[in-house]
């Protein structure tokens, strides 16, 4: 799960919700056509939610790429209940009836979409995954998503730099054994381990719950009053860590670096409350997704895994125009 918006546990609950609603809402895909020029190629973009700060930029990027490639038809669909996995599977099946040339989808569950997407591939539809990926490599042509380990490394290098190579640091992580989150921690660990003055205290788990994140941070501060740095691998971890640091009056003493780029996180970097963010770009995911689909139409070979660079965002580049494409927002900038 490269997106913090929809974690497996949320997904399960959302699926439960959809079940209890008797699939009424799940069927309602609010598909919407956006034609740009000659309807040469038809692309179906399937996300987990509309008007969402993570998925809206993805739509923007897809539209932008299509415009640059000289047109085609883009149809964007999402379940009416955000993150409703069965609803998304139904949307895939409905989209197939319209015979698109490619399906670009964020598979928010690592397995549930594989059968439907395999069926699509068998009909000659190109399948491009964005943000997340699937375990079954035969169910898609290419997958584009943030390189979580490199993102973690960027955070680690910045931590070393910010601390002048000295001090005790720890990672706040959501769940053990969750691939994406583990990669973020591994990358960070690799980067800080190279610095002999850094004492890496390891990882504490929060279940991505702000209260638990605050609780373990407060306990870590009690144990290690000279703690110097915290790497929070997602939004709620950072919210909890900052909360505990504020209560202990230690926010200025501890360098916080976090994954994700919500509006309030960006503001905190601007205000100097936290040191840096590692940003992934949903806009680039959408943009590259459509570009890859066109390459596949032309018969160009596309690598099955296309890791996307993450951007380290500090006070020095937060207002850089190029940084904005890494922010979660509901507005298209172009």
């Amino acid at each position: 799960m490269a997106s913090r918006r929809l974690r497996p546990s949320v997904t399960i609950i959302m699926a439960l919700g959809a079940l209890t609603l008797g699939y009424v809402s799940a069927c309602g895909s609010n598909a919407e056509g956006s034609s740009a020029g000659s309807a040469e190629h038809k692309i179906a973009l399937i996300t987990a939610a509309r008007n969402n700060p993570f998925f809206s930029p993805m739509e923007c990027g897809a539209k932008k790429a299509l415009g640059e490639l000289g047109g085609g038809k883009l149809e964007v669909s999402a379940p009416s209940t955000p993150g409703d996995v069965p609803g998304m599977v139904q949307i895939i099946n409905a989209a197939m009836a319209k015979k698109p040339d490619a399906i670009v989808i964020d598979p928010i569950d690592t397995a549930a979409f594989s059968p439907a997407l395999r069926a699509a591939k068998d009909k000659g539809i190109k399948v491009v995954l964005v943000d997340n990926t699937l375990t079954d490599a035969k169910s898609y042509d290419t997958a584009i998503g943030a390189n979580n380990e490199v993102g973690g490394e960027q955070a680690g290098q910045e931590m070393v730099k910010a601390l002048g190579g000295q001090g005790k640091v720890l990672t706040l992580n959501g769940f053990p054994g969750q691939e994406t989150l583990t990669a973020r921690e591994e990358g960070f660990k690799k980067a800080v381990s190279g610095s002999p003055g850094i004492d890496y205290l390891g990882v504490q788990y929060s279940k991505q719950d702000a209260t638990t994140a605050a609780s373990v941070t407060a306990a870590a501060l009690a144990k290690t009053p000279d703690l110097k740095g915290i790497w929070a691998t997602s939004y709620n971890d950072m919210i909890g860590a900052v909360n505990a640091l504020k209560r202990a009056n230690k926010l200025s003493q501890v360098t916080v670096i976090a994954w994700d780029t919500t509006e309030d996180q960006v503001k905190m970097v601007r205000d100097g409350e936290i040191h840096a963010l590692v940003g992934q770009s949903p806009e680039l995911m959408g943009y590259n997704g459509v570009q890859s689909a066109y390459k596949l139409f032309d018969g160009t070979t596309v690598p099955q895994s296309q890791p996307l660079d993450t951007l380290l965002i500090t006070k020095s580049n937060v207002d850089d125009p190029k940084t904005a494409q890494y922010f979660y927002t509901t507005k298209c900038d172009s």
């Binding site: 918006r5 959302m14 959809a18 939610a49 700060p53 998925f55 955000p82 939004y235 919500t262 979660y328």
Partner: peptide
């Protein structure tokens, strides 16, 4: 309450647009 568990969360997400509110 298993039903309302899903419903309350679903409605909350719809209302908030899947996004945490400040």
């Amino acid at each position: 309450t298993l039903g309302t568990l899903g419903m309350a969360l679903g409605f909350a997400l719809m209302w908030a647009g899947g996004n945490d509110l400040q």
